[in-house]
Amino acid sequence: MSQLFYDAAPNATRVSPEREADRHYPEKPEAVTLFGTCVVDLFFPEAGLDAIRLLEREGVRVHFPQEQSCCGQPAWTSGYRDEAKAVARAQLDILDQSGLPVVVPSGSCGGMFRHHYPALFADEPDTLKRVEALAERTFELTEFLLEVCRVQLADRGAPSKIALHTSCSARREMNTHLHARELLQQLEAVERVDHDHESECCGFGGTFSVRMPEVSGAMVKDKTRSLIDSGAVEMVTADGGCLMNINGSLEKQKESFRGRHLASFLWERTNGDNAGEVA
């Protein structure tokens, strides 16, 4: 990642960053900020609410600043750096108001905070310090539940077989697949089945899905096929973008199989009530 080069002479030959040491996790804080993400905000709000419920059940107070919007990723991955930076700066200002740890129910947005904000602000030393502090206190939801809250989930649901899809950026930037697997393992009656080419991208890639619909479409078709063939009754994922991509494709193909957000799945399995109830 580029953030390690900001202090190098501009034309110096670059080396890859040192390998990241295992992340050191803090004690469970009293309160956190939930950064909902724009996709969850508009399309899967129940998942965001379930994330709040899961955190509250662990005794963590949740703040949801009403000024938040999007992390800036769509513009950043489209090459619109200035626009991405303006949006990123707005989020940084909002999240810095309380300075609380930030929990994100979407791995790729968490990765944006942790790995791409430093690249965006590489040329602003003062902002960069704040960005690094944000990166340090940002956690993907499953990571936070597992490593910071050290959650112990008591499964109250009926036996079920599920498949897990992890977004690529979450997998590679945040190790989310391992956290999610461990959480699912705590659920006694849930069997997680592997699906073919599990680590392969679902084809979303943000604006890739509309810039290259032919290739993206082929990728999501392969992904939905392997999910259906896995023998699972449903898919769970901790990333809103992938969820929108996979469910949208399944619906278009008139398949009954569906995926849902891991937060909703966990809440439903462990709460006993119907999860994701939207008023």
Binding site: G36, D41, V62, F64, Q66, V278, A279
Partner: peptide
């Protein structure tokens, strides 16, 4: 646009997380 070549049309939820979170909290 190209999105609906491969997907059903996206339909927003009835209430945003902004709304749900504000009410819940």
């Amino acid at each position: 646009g190209p999105w609906t070549e491969n997907h059903s049309a996206p339909v927003p939820a009835r209430r945003s997380l902004h709304d749900l979170a504000a009410r819940h909290l």
